[in-house]
């Protein structure tokens, strides 16, 4: 049971909640995640820890409304409790002094890169942060990221903020400008794949954070398996970070689509429940 201390929407479908979870806050490191069950009948869903405050005993989670279980999570108000939250899970991101590092975030990944950028900067790296979204409205965490980055570059599909185009164009330019020792990409699978294709040619080690399906998320069920370097790896206990040049993105995409057709049915059920509860 963890109380929601604050809650706000960052964009039409992206929400930020801060939760009292002292034990998780005490151990959380960049790149780790929690599993949340927002209601008795809900799924167990993995969500990245976007920030944590050890002194206050809180963690911050950013999530996108993407279906039934996240809809239940958005329905919880300040003062209400999340019935089950487990973490910190996953292997923390590798943080050391690499030199010049480009961190790319797309969609809700923009918030998920925040702790990584913060930790990399604290470790003495020159961090160039590149974020991308469909439009200006969907750009989140801009002030937070600008504080911890050397440079913050923006791309939007419609040109309503920053460069009109894709994050990969900005990444290519950053690499051309001066040598980059490492790239980290967090976001939609096509974005991560495009970044990896680009850096493979340039020979720059690139880490991606994989948001696979998960159930127990503690190394038991095997649903998070993904082919990395030709071998099955398990994102919950061996990830979520992997060497992007070795990830089989087609395998990942196909597995992520397993339940697509049932997601709508579940969401409709939750919508009916919530309408009943509110009306």
């Amino acid at each position: 049971m963890s109380e929601i201390l604050s809650r706000k929407s960052l964009s039409p479908n992206v929400f930020q909640i801060t939760v009292a979870a002292p034990a998780i806050a005490a151990g959380a490191r960049a790149g780790q995640f929690v599993v949340i069950i927002p209601a008795t009948q809900a799924e167990r869903i993995p969500l990245t820890i976007a920030d944590s405050d050890q002194a206050k005993g809180t963690i911050t989670i950013i999530f996108q409304l993407a279906g039934a279980t996240t809809r239940l999570l958005t329905s919880l108000q300040v003062g209400e409790k999340i019935p089950h939250i487990l973490g910190p899970l996953g292997v923390p991101s590798e943080i050391e002094k690499f030199g010049r590092v480009v961190v790319v975030g797309g969609g809700v990944g923009i918030a998920e890169i925040y702790p990584v950028v913060k930790a990399l900067t604290a470790a003495g790296n020159e961090v160039v942060t590149i974020v991308g979204a469909r439009n200006k409205e969907l750009l989140i965490f801009q002030s937070e990221l600008s504080v911890v980055s050397c440079q913050l570059l923006v791309a939007t599909d419609d040109g309503s903020s920053g460069r009109k185009g894709f994050v990969t164009e900005l990444l290519a330019e950053a690499i051309k400008e001066r040598p980059v020792q490492r790239v980290i990409a967090v976001g939609p699978v096509p974005m991560m794949k495009a970044c990896c294709d680009l850096t493979r040619e340039a020979g720059i080690k690139t880490i991606v954070s994989l948001n696979t399906l998960m159930l127990d998320a503690t190394g038991m069920c095997g649903v998070c398996r993904v082919k990395v370097g030709g071998e099955n790896r398990f994102a919950c206990v061996e990830g979520p970070d992997f060497d992007g040049h070795l990830v089989d993105f087609a395998d990942l995409t196909s597995r992520l689509g397993t339940y697509k057709d049932l997601e709508k049915k579940a969401d409709d059920h939750v919508c009916r429940l919530l309408r009943g509860k509110n009306g």
Binding site: Q41, L215, G222, L262
Partner: peptide
């Protein structure tokens, strides 16, 4: 895997989907 299949059904009660949301 059997672990996944049984976890969905036994632990998450997927046999009662969509009343229980795990498919």
């Amino acid at each position: 895997s059997a672990n996944e299949f049984l976890f969905r059904v036994n632990m998450m009660k997927a046999y009662k989907f969509p009343e229980y949301l795990t498919p």
